[in-house]
C-alpha cells in the first residue's frame, strides 16, 4: 500500500542550532497518528515544514508520492488556535466556508453548494446552531470545533492538526476524537500534534516520537514504550514518571 506521507532527511534550522534534524518517517494510510514530544521538540515546525510554510535546510517530503503542492488539495490543515484574530468581522459559517476557497479557485466566489456543504460540516461538529455567531462570541471549545469543521470542508485526504485539544472542554475533546475516528473510517489519514501522554494509547494507532530528531515511529503498541519515551523526554522527570505509569498500565 502507498504511504500518504513520506519524509526523508528533513532538517530545519532557524539560526545556529537545527530545530529538526534529519527526520525520516512514513505514515500508513487510514490511520490516526500522534506526533508526540516535549516542548520545543519541533512538533509544529514539522507540520509547517511538511506544508512548505517554512523553508527547510535539507530533505524531501512526499504526499501521495508527489512533492507537496497546495493546489493538489489533498491536505487539510488546522493551525493552532491562537493564530487568528478573533475580532475579525466574520461568523462561524463564513469561517468554515473559507475551507472551500481552495476548491473554488481564483476569481470565483463560493456558491450555494459550497454553503450547504459548509453548513453540513458545522452540523457534523455539532455547531450548526451557531452558524451566525461572530467567532469571538464562541467558547474556546466551540471555536476549535469551527476550525475542525473548516478542515472537513477542505475535503482532504490527509489532515494535519496542531494541538487541537489544547484549551477545550471535555465534551469538545470527545467530539473531536469521534470526528477523527469517523475520518479514519472514511480512509483519511490524520496527523495530530499532541502532548497529553495519558491519552496517547487511547486515541492513536500510530505515533511519531519527536525531539529535534525522530526518536521512533510506528504502531502505538510497539512504539510507545518506556524506553522510547525515556529517549524522547530525556531528563524531564515529571514526564518520565507519568510515562512509567502509563507504560505499566499496559
Amino acid at each position: 500500500m502507498m504511504n500518504p506521507v513520506v519524509v526523508k532527511g528533513l532538517t530545519v534550522a532557524y539560526q545556529e542550532k537545527p530545530v529538526l534534524k534529519d527526520i525520516n518517517f512514513e505514515v500508513p494510510e487510514g490511520k490516526l497518528i500522534g506526533i508526540i514530544g516535549p516542548n520545543g521538540a519541533g512538533k509544529s515546525t514539522l507540520i509547517k515544514a511538511i506544508l512548505g510554510l517554512i523553508p527547510k535546510a535539507a530533505g524531501q517530503i512526499q504526499i501521495y508520492n508527489k512533492p507537496y503542492r497546495a493546489k493538489d488539495r489533498v491536505v487539510g490543515y488546522v493551525p493552532q488556535r491562537g493564530s487568528v484574530d478573533w475580532d475579525f468581522p466574520t461568523n462561524a459559517l463564513d469561517v468554515v466556508l473559507m475551507g472551500r476557497y481552495g476548491h473554488v479557485g481564483w476569481f470565483k466566489r463560493p456558491g450555494k453548494k459550497d454553503e450547504a456543504f459548509a453548513l453540513e460540516c458545522l452540523r457534523k461538529v455539532g455547531m450548526a446552531d451557531f452558524a451566525d455567531r461572530q467567532i469571538s462570541q464562541l467558547s474556546g471549545g466551540q471555536q476549535q470545533r469551527v476550525f475542525l469543521a473548516r478542515a472537513l470542508a477542505q475535503e482532504a485526504k490527509v489532515y494535519f492538526m496542531d494541538e487541537p485539544f489544547v484549551g477545550v472542554d471535555a465534551a469538545t475533546e470527545r467530539a473531536i476524537i469521534d470526528l477523527l475516528n469517523e475520518l479514519k473510517e472514511q480512509g483519511k489519514t490524520v496527523l495530530v500534534v499532541h502532548h497529553d501522554l495519558q491519552t496517547v494509547k487511547e486515541y492513536f494507532d500510530h505515533v511519531l516520537l519527536l525531539n529535534v530528531e525522530a526518536i521512533a515511529s510506528g504502531p502505538t503498541e510497539s512504539t510507545f514504550t518506556m524506553e522510547n519515551l525515556h529517549q524522547t523526554y530525556g531528563g524531564k522527570l515529571a514526564f518520565l514518571e507519568k510515562g512509567q505509569m502509563i507504560a505499566e498500565q499496559k
Binding site: K48, L51, G52, L53, R69, A70, K71, R73, V75, Y77, P79, S83, V84, D85, F88, T90, V95, M98, Y101, G102, V104, W106, F107, R109, P110, R150, Q154
Partner: peptide, 22 residues
C-alpha cells in the same frame, strides 16, 4: 471584486491561506 476571498482569508488566517496554496 476579483480577489475578495483571497484578501479575506489572508487577512483572517495567513497560515491556513498559505497551506491551501494562496
Amino acid at each position: 471584486f476579483l480577489f475578495y476571498k483571497e484578501l479575506k482569508i489572508t487577512s483572517f488566517d495567513p497560515a491556513m491561506a498559505a497551506a491551501i496554496g494562496i
